[in-house]
Simulated scan of single mutants.
Amino acid sequence: MIVNIAVCDDKQASLDIIQKELVKAANNLNITIETYLYMDGNEVVDLICNSKEDFDILFLDIDMPNISGLEVAKKIRNAGSDIILIFISAHEQYVFESIDYNPFKYIRKNKIEEEIEYSLKRAYKRISSENAKSIVVKTEDGEVRLKHTSIMYFEVYARRMSVFTNGNQKRNLVGRKTIKKLYSELNDEDFIQIHSGCIVNVKYIDEYSGHDITLDNGTKLIVSRPRIKEVKEAISSYWSRRV
């Protein structure tokens, strides 16, 4: 497996150092990587938000002119990207602000040599784990294999089951598979059944209030009364695992 890594920093010298340390870390860990270097955060936003490149990890400097790393992170998260985001900064005061964008790690620039290998090792472990989880579904366009991480939710409406994936793509499923059977096949703690006709990937839940959940693309879904407690526990468990 090749891990595609984007690195964004407004200074060429910093890019060179980060790339050098990534190559060294990858060799030590026996990981194959491809690195892509950028000095303009707006270019990174365009590549990721418009699906022009498929990066696995983004190493992102925070303190940049024109557009800060925090603004880059905000734009790609708002676009629905779940890329592994690793902030790099010389200023530790940004740590708390960066939390809003679900960073995987925060690396101090004066500690790059010490911290980059550990960050790459952890990120690779998550990528490997997520790539191993997938499900094959029969759709109107034929059989499709979907990574669990790309699935936002399954929903039954008017006796038709559909799957919604990140990027707001909808596919109608064919066959007689029930929600109960599908939930069993997923066998993934990140999925929770919120009512008799809907299964949601907890990673895409942005807000929870009363009998409603709101996904990070703005979609609102109703939680049935008997499942409120279970859904709240699943959300809390997921968020605590990501801290």
Rank of each mutant, 00 (worst) to 15 (best):
M1P: 09
N4C: 07
N4S: 11
A6I: 01
V7P: 04
C8M: 00
D10M: 02
D10V: 03
K11V: 13
A13M: 12
L15K: 03
D16W: 01
I17T: 11
Q19G: 13
Q19N: 14
K20C: 12
E21L: 01
L22H: 09
L22Y: 05
A26F: 05
N27W: 06
I31H: 08
I33E: 05
I33V: 10
I33H: 07
E34P: 00
L37M: 08
L37R: 04
Y38D: 04
Y38N: 07
Y38W: 06
D40W: 03
G41R: 00
G41Q: 00
V44G: 00
D46M: 05
D46W: 06
I48N: 02
S51I: 04
K52Q: 15
K52L: 10
D54N: 11
F55C: 03
D56W: 08
D56G: 03
D61P: 03
M64G: 06
I67M: 11
G69H: 01
G69M: 01
L70Q: 00
E71W: 00
E71K: 09
V72R: 03
A73L: 00
K75C: 05
I76K: 02
N78F: 07
G80C: 07
I84S: 03
L85T: 01
I86W: 07
I86M: 06
I88L: 11
I88N: 09
V95A: 15
E97H: 11
I99R: 07
N102P: 00
F104T: 08
K105C: 12
K105T: 07
R108E: 12
E114Q: 13
E115Y: 08
E115Q: 14
Y118T: 12
L120P: 06
A123W: 08
Y124A: 14
K125H: 10
K125V: 09
R126V: 12
R126I: 14
S129I: 12
E130P: 06
N131W: 11
I135K: 04
V136D: 14
V137P: 09
V137I: 14
K138E: 15
T139D: 02
D141W: 11
G142W: 04
V144Q: 15
S150C: 12
M152P: 07
M152D: 07
Y153S: 01
V156R: 09
V156E: 11
Y157P: 06
A158M: 12
R160N: 12
R160I: 13
V163K: 02
V163H: 05
F164W: 15
T165L: 12
N166V: 15
N168M: 10
Q169H: 15
K170A: 04
V174K: 13
K177I: 15
K177S: 12
K177L: 10
K180E: 13
L182E: 09
L182K: 09
S184A: 14
S184M: 11
L186G: 02
L186W: 05
L186Q: 00
N187Q: 03
E189V: 09
D190H: 11
F191R: 01
I192E: 01
I192H: 00
Q193W: 04
I194N: 02
I194S: 00
S196I: 07
S196L: 06
C198E: 08
V200L: 08
V200G: 02
D206I: 04
S209L: 10
G210Y: 00
N217F: 08
T219F: 10
V223R: 01
S224P: 02
R225P: 10
P226T: 08
R227D: 04
E230H: 11
V231C: 04
I235A: 05
Y238K: 02
R241N: 15
R242K: 14
V243W: 08
